[in-house]
């Protein structure tokens, strides 16, 4: 990777509801005051950043995955396609081959192994990406079509769009899906630094520990932001100390933040404590960029 390529910062959390969206949107808006910034919402099952980023929609693009389509004329009904499909996405029902798009992993096995080319690969809409722009802030979000079950192909696609279209923007913030399963692994792929957002409660700690385990296994450089500090107990802080994980900032628990947030507003300009936390995070980001 050359030093000209964007610095990619992932914002993740072991569990949902810790403040990942709050941090992503406010950090993006804050950073864009100083330099062009891209925010990417990769939580494709439940994208929410757009509710807070009040930017005009520029354009929308459909996103496709590759799936086989049955060509009845060419088919000799040998049934090989249904036998090779590990996902039961291709099923032979008598004289009909049915393809179930949402189950298909796009491995191409049925299509390429078909002796008569009766399953050519075509595009199938799995979701869409929306592009927003407001001053120095560029924002894109991808949303899975309801009923589509696989988030990973859309996450990968969104990654490559960010890479190709926004290569000129130096800082990319990626709001990742919650959890520790494959969507998170896909979302944090090729990122330079991961910010794990947690809250100071036993639930928060439990999920942070899982997320830390994931990041270590992936060999990621990461730090922790504690949201709603003062709300629970000190176990998260103690854990970070013990594990030598940097706590890069804390956002205090204030009812006012929750109230503003609930109405879809950004809070960094009205709440000094949030602004302070963002300043600290910005310094860390700067440092990571310089070191690269």
């Amino acid at each position: 990777m050359t030093s000209k390529s964007p610095l990619k910062i992932a914002i993740a959390s072991g569990k949902g509801g810790t403040g990942k969206t709050l941090l992503s949107t406010n950090l993006a808006a804050y950073l864009s005051q100083f330099e062009p910034t891209l925010l990417v919402d990769l939580d494709v099952e439940e994208p929410n950043d757009a509710l807070f980023i009040n930017a005009p929609l520029l354009s929308t693009a459909n996103q496709h995955k590759m799936i086989p389509v049955w060509n009845e004329q060419e088919c000799i009904l040998c049934g090989k396609c249904a036998r090779v499909c590990k996902f039961h996405a291709v099923v032979q029902l008598g004289r009909t081959i049915s393809v179930f798009n949402q189950l298909c992993h796009s491995c191409y096995a049925c299509s390429e192994l078909c002796p008569t080319n009766a399953l050519p690969i075509q595009t199938h809409k799995m979701g869409e990406t929306r592009f927003f722009e407001k001053g120095n802030l560029s924002f894109i979000e991808s949303r899975l079509v309801v009923g589509e079950e696989q988030a990973v192909p859309l996450i990968n696609k969104t990654h490559s769009i960010a890479q190709q279209k926004y290569n000129h923007i130096k800082t990319h913030l990626l709001d990742c899906p919650p959890g520790t399963s494959c969507p998170v692994v896909a979302a944090t792929k090729d990122t330079h630094y991961v910010i794990l957002v947690t809250e100071p409660t036993p639930f928060g700690l439990n999920d942070l520990a899982l997320a830390v385990e994931t990041m270590r296994q992936l060999g990621k450089d990461f730090g922790v932001v504690i949201n709603r500090e003062g709300h629970g107990n000190s176990s998260v802080k103690e854990y970070c100390q013990r594990e030598q994980i940097p706590v890069i900032a804390s956002i205090p628990f204030q009812r006012e933040i929750a109230e503003l947030y609930s109405t879809g507003q950004l809070v960094y300009s009205t709440i000094p404590a949030v602004r302070q936390a963002l300043e600290q995070i910005a310094l860390v980001i700067k440092e990571k960029g310089a070191k690269r």
Binding site: E46, N48, S262
Partner: peptide, 17 residues
């Protein structure tokens, strides 16, 4: 659910399922 814009948004999606 909780009374936030994202809460309502996600409620609509899950109720649909």
């Amino acid at each position: 659910t909780e009374p936030t814009v994202s809460g309502l948004h996600d409620l609509e999606r899950i109720a649909g399922v």
